[in-house]
């Protein structure tokens, strides 16, 4: 099988004040183009660390990561990232934050009016038309996350890296954005890696669920194929026994085999 994203024996060791800390080890993963991967695991196991490696923000201590047969040597605009802590620039408005990304990707070949249109469309998509000229300190945590999502989507990236993008959202907004995400990914054929804590979300959205063991020296414990037909409808899935079976398997991995030791 030819893989689009290829992670070979990656290992990540951090230098800390108390010496070396091995966060990830023996990470092997192949992702096909257009595939949707959910990364799930207990807090602190190294999901963000893995995502940062793919984003090119950090380099592995050992091993290689290839993206369409080229080694990942740094970040690139073909990889859109939604950060776990949203990372908006506080001195720019919501519009300004998204525009910065749009300008970078499309600025060379499109007029300003088109760039503004794209920015507006991206913010509309996440339901923030009304807050377009507010600064990040004037909006709620969930709204900030949505601006972060809009910023990544507006770049129309080939690879979407999402670090708990819906973590701070209420169930209703979350469901709406999950549906949007499914639609966008289908439309753009983006290859997606999404970190989540939510078992339902993982099963609903992904083609495969990568389940990670607990750190330190975390690695990939199991990979679960989610062979539910698309398009998926959350209400219909609720009556689907296959859905419940998959859900059960993830839960079993998380809470039986890798129960987080009480700290």
């Amino acid at each position: 099988m030819h893989s689009y994203l290829h992670i070979d024996n990656a290992k990540m060791v951090f230098d800390t004040k108390k010496g070396k800390f091995t966060a990830l080890t023996d990470i092997n993963l192949d992702v096909k183009q257009g595939e949707f991967i959910a990364l799930i695991g207990h807090s602190g196991c190294g999901k963000s660390t893995l995502l940062n490696l793919v984003a090119g923000l950090t380099e592995p201590t050992q091993g290689v990561l290839l993206l369409s047969d080229k080694e990942i040597k740094g970040p690139g605009p073909e990889r859109g990232v939604v950060f776990q802590n949203h990372s908006l620039l506080p001195w720019l408005t919501c519009f300004g934050n998204v525009y910065l990304a749009v300008e970078r990707v499309f600025g060379a070949k499109e007029p300003k009016s088109k760039l503004k249109e794209r920015t507006q469309a991206a913010l509309e998509l996440v339901g923030l038309s009304h807050a377009i000229h507010k600064h990040p300190n004037e909006i709620s945590g969930g709204m900030k996350q949505r601006v972060g999502i809009a910023r990544a989507l507006a770049m129309e990236p080939k690879v979407l890296l999402l670090d708990e993008p819906f973590g701070a959202l209420d169930a209703l907004t979350r469901a709406g954005l999950q549906d949007e995400l499914m639609r966008i990914v289908k439309e753009t054929q983006a290859t997606t890696l999404m970190v989540t804590h939510d078992v339902d979300e993982a099963v609903l959205l992904s083609d495969r669920i990568v389940m990670m063991t607990n750190g330190p020296s975390a690695t990939i414990g199991e990979i679960l194929e989610v062979d539910l037909p698309r398009p998926r409808d959350r209400l219909k899935l609720a009556e689907n026994p296959a859905y419940h079976h998959l859900r059960g398997q993830v839960l079993e991995f998380l809470y039986q085999k890798h129960l987080k030791k009480a700290a």
Partner: peptide, 12 residues
Amino acid sequence: QDYLNVARVLNL
């Protein structure tokens, strides 16, 4: 570092 990461991801 978060802001610098944004700069790097956007390749500014």
